[in-house]
Design a binder for these strands. Structure first.
Lengths: 337, 337
DNA sequence: CTGAAAGCGCTTACAG
DNA sequence: CTGAAAGCGCTTACAG
């Protein structure tokens, strides 16, 4: 491997110190400090030698790496893939690089990713927090390492975060179904104490109560790691029960997809046997024979804002910015057109 | 921010040199070199102080970063998201971190990502090469920087790569359609000189010829940046033409999805008006009213192999490993069940 | 056998 | 005003 060109190589060739080369190449010569012909010569030689600064050395010296650590639940999940793409683009505009890790909603993996990224001296974190990982994130906060939570937040912790108006999203979903004449509305959720899930559940429950449907409340809470098995079971049970639902709301993208497979297997007709509302956009929603009404999240805004807020913190802002973004309910055939 | 603990802090506390601490903590004390009580004490203090090595300093010193640069077309595309996830997991097992960039099939962006990653001293690259970027990748090869191409390769360059048997994939797709009685089979492709696309086109063409259907060959080549517009146009034209196709093969995941939207808009009935074969698995394929027959790629193997081959190169192997993985044709209703 | 000293490639406080 | 020297936090060749 041909050795990389360093500041020293340029300095030797021009006959000045590396310090001066560094000043010039970083545009800090302040003109007066050095003759214009030397500046020109340094630039020339740097160009000829195709000099590229070694960011690792610079990072060590400056104590910052221009790197953001992004931890999502699973980069293969389209919602997080899209989010990661926005983060990548936004960070890139500001000369930051992103390293990405998938936690699988698992606390041990999250902790290990945080540690790895910390060892690599990331300047800040954007994290989709998993259940029960408060401690790991709290320790970042205590160390005053910039961190922005996204998609969910931890109410016990005082951090910046960007989330959806989860309560409003499911509340509106119920309201829409009620307006369409549905009454036995079930919610499919994850078994999770995380606030985004609790808020989606609360939005559903409150809306049901406000519509005097509390006796029809049915919530199926599934385990993240056993969704496929449990959703089949859950759908069967809902249908064998006494108050068979006439509508279902899925509270995440992945649950929606799994739910659609279950409905397909059970040959349940949408919206005749049952109306359906999904979460997040998804191509599969469009090609389901009865295109899905769904709760749309502003992923782009979510990604952009999280980068913006994080960079502010990296630049020194001590303010916690807590943003709730608005959903949009996209109406289609699965709730009666 | 509480200052990080460094080797020096431990050394001071124990009363030895940082060198010794480094040896001990890296398990290189060779026992004899230092008394067991000192080893114990160093380990103790490191634990008490919660010492974490600074990887940036280590990287600068060692000249390697344990970081892989992964460049895909678009991390938000599920195919690349899944690939990235495999790469992340495999790399993690070997203590490597992955930085990801999306090129949008654009040469300028690819070049800029390569440069950024190079400045950050990645130990090697896994790249989905874009059209016309031979020069950038060639320069990596010339600098003897480990690089593995994935999904596609550049025949002019001698590098390692992991790709699909693209020729075989479309060849079998045609064969299957012919066996089902279809004759006017069209191919929807990208306008691209990249070898994976050319091979898919060649597989289609050869299979058509081998089945004496050369007069029915119809290939629509679309621009990556204008797929949505052009596919509508393309589908319309195919249907207005003299030899209206009775079957279509889509040659990528994204083309398949766009194609399904077009078919839906044009109210073309699958498989009665037209049989369809998609590329890659996709949830949307399952929920299309006529579930799609598709060419399945072994994404997991592709990701694992690319990491394995890259790490071999990083460890010094000079051998170029060129692997063609087998597709599987998954038969479903869109080609007649 | 042992451990202090040099050095990776930068940046910038500070001595002259 | 100028630029040499110190130092970021490690690792390891090498002098003793």
């Amino acid at each position: 491997m041909s050795k990389r060109v360093s500041l020293k190589d340029i300095a030797n060739k021009v006959g000045v110190s590396t310090a001066l080369v560094s000043y010039v190449l970083n545009g800090l010569e302040k003109e007066k400090r050095v003759g214009p012909e030397v500046v020109k010569r340094i630039r020339e030689v740097a160009g000829d030698l195709n000099y590229k600064p070694n960011q690792i050395a610079r990072s060590l010296r400056k104590g910052s790496t221009n790197t953001i650590g992004l931890i999502v639940a699973d980069i293969a999940n389209p919602f997080f893939g899209q989010l990661a793409r926005i983060v990548e683009d936004e960070a890139g505009k500001h000369n930051y690089t992103v390293i990405i890790g998938s936690s699988d909603e698992n606390c041990v993996k999250s902790a290990s990713l945080i540690e790895t990224f910390l060892d690599r001296q990331v300047d800040g974190f954007i994290i989709v927090p998993s259940e029960g990982c408060n401690q790991e994130i709290e320790s970042l906060v205590n160390k005053e390492i910039p961190v922005v939570l996204v998609d969910r937040f931890l109410p016990e912790l005082s951090t910046s975060y960007i989330v959806l108006d989860n309560f409003g999203a499911t509340y509106e979903a119920v309201t829409h179904l009620v307006a369409k004449g549905y009454k036995n509305i079930a919610l499919i959720a994850y078994k999770s104490s995380l606030v985004h899930m609790q808020e989606r559940i609360r939005g559903y429950s409150e809306a049901m109560k406000d519509n005097h449907l509390e006796q029809a409340i049915q919530i199926k809470e599934l385990s993240y790691n056993r969704v496929k098995e449990e959703i089949e079971e859950g759908v069967s049970k809902l249908f064998d029960g006494n108050n068979k639902p006439d509508a279902m709301i899925f509270s995440t993208n992945a649950l929606s997809i799994s739910g659609l497979y279950a409905l397909k297997n059970h040959k349940i007709r949408v919206p005749d046997d049952m109306a359906i509302i999904g979460f997040d956009g998804n191509e599969a929603f469009d090609f389901f024979y009865s295109p899905l009404t769904f709760i749309e999240q502003p992923i782009e805004e979510m990604g952009k804002e999280s980068v913006r807020v994080l960079l502010d913190q990296i630049k020194g802002s001590k303010e916690n910015v807590q943003i709730e973004l608005n959903h949009r309910l996209i109406l289609r055939e699965s709730t009666g057109g």
